[in-house]
């Protein structure tokens, strides 16, 4: 038949080399991420200049200072320069990795402070994120598959209740009951002060300190993964390909895990990475309640001054983490969805 060429045309159009297409995709997404980061850098500078409060006054609080001394301090910090000059200096320093000098922690640079605090924050939020994602996704697909069952009702109800609870309140409650009252877990910090543990003992000590903050974070955030995964599976529930899978004779749980879940994961993944990035920022409350020596706690302290260079620094770092996570989400999405690979 002369007219059967239609099939061939559609397929030929798809046959772009996969490698080239992948490089292009990564380049476009990376470019987007870098532009976002540049915007953050600019915004970070000006946003904090709008904050109320005079850092020089806060720094000198409770001490006798002459106007001349204040003026001198201002000049020293570069606060008397025009805003654009300050901005230029900020950009120039940033290019060399110098985030400036903290107003409050006089002897440390912002970069050092952040480097010190980054690891504890990543440990706390990373653990909490991993647990809440796994728990949320697993419960989400189970509740959707048995929609309307007691399992569904109990778990969605419970998750939504925790979701509605204020983080600091739950943290304080856990702190009071399991830390103060029962004394099962330590109440502050990441390590037992003065114990000087090493090796395995150190790891166990940190893990012991980690329990309550992680539980607080997980309890408050896992609901969003549960609800999104549940909605996403429900959307796939009546898909024709699931009927095909059933007609093939697959057991019900195989229909779920092999066919429904991979498809339901697609919209969920983007959300996971978006919110995991956000979790790092959300650590402010939990870290403050448990005095966890992380970035969130540092930000909280910087905000009360306001310690402008430190705030700028943490703001840029938090934003960079969120942007990086979105970038990773784009990459993972492409791996999961074959339809995006040729796009």
């Amino acid at each position: 038949m002369t007219i059967a060429s239609n099939d061939a045309v559609t397929v030929a159009a798809d046959d772009t080399p996969r490698g080239a297409s992948l490089r292009r995709y990564v380049a476009v997404k990376a470019g987007g991420a870098l532009i976002s980061l540049a915007m953050v850098v600019v915004l970070g500078f000006f946003a904090f200049r709008v904050l109320p409060g005079d850092p020089v006054r806060t720094m000198t609080q409770g001490r006798q200072v002459t106007p001349e001394q204040l003026e001198g301090l201002r000049r020293q910090l570069g606060l008397d320069d025009p805003l654009l000059v300050q901005f230029w200096n900020y950009l120039r320093d940033l290019a060399t990795g110098d985030l400036g000098q903290s107003y409050v922690y006089k002897n440390s640079s912002v970069a050092e402070l952040i480097a010190d605090r980054l690891l504890p924050t990543l440990l706390l939020t990373g653990t909490a994120a991993a647990i809440s994602v796994v728990l949320g996704l697993w419960l989400g697909q189970r509740t959707a598959w048995r929609r309307g069952s007691w399992f569904d009702k109990v778990h969605t109800g419970l998750a939504l209740t925790f979701w509605s609870v204020p983080t600091f309140w739950l943290g304080l409650l856990l702190l009071l009951v399991f830390g103060g009252g029962l004394g099962w877990f330590p109440t502050t910090g990441m390590t037992t002060a003065g114990a000087g543990y090493t090796g395995v003992e150190h790891v166990l000590d940190v893990a012991h300190h980690l329990v309550l903050p992680v539980i607080t974070m997980v309890a408050v955030v896992y609901a969003q993964y549960l609800m999104v995964m549940r909605a996403s599976v429900l959307e796939e529930m009546h898909s024709d390909y699931l009927t095909t899978a059933r007609a093939k004779g697959l057991r019900d749980d195989l229909v779920r895990t092999r066919h429904a879940v991979p498809n339901a994961l697609l919209p969920t993944v983007t959300l996971i990475f978006l919110t995991v990035g956000g979790l790092v920022g959300g650590a402010v409350t939990v870290e403050s309640v448990f005095s966890w020596p992380g970035l969130g706690y540092l930000t909280y302290q910087a905000l009360s001054e306001p310690d402008l260079p430190l705030l700028q620094g943490t703001f840029v770092v938090f934003s960079a983490i969120v942007i990086l996570m979105n970038f990773v989400a784009d990459l993972v999405y492409r791996v999961l969805d074959p339809r995006l690979r040729s796009a």
């Binding site: 024709d240 007609a247 004779g249 498809n263």
Partner: peptide, 23 residues
């Protein structure tokens, strides 16, 4: 489950949706 597909199988309407898009 043993009978499904082994003794009778179905060519579904709209193969567009009856095939799993990610497999």
């Amino acid at each position: 489950r043993a009978v499904r597909w082994a003794e009778a199988s179905i060519v579904f309407q709209g193969a567009m949706h009856a095939l799993n898009p990610v497999r």
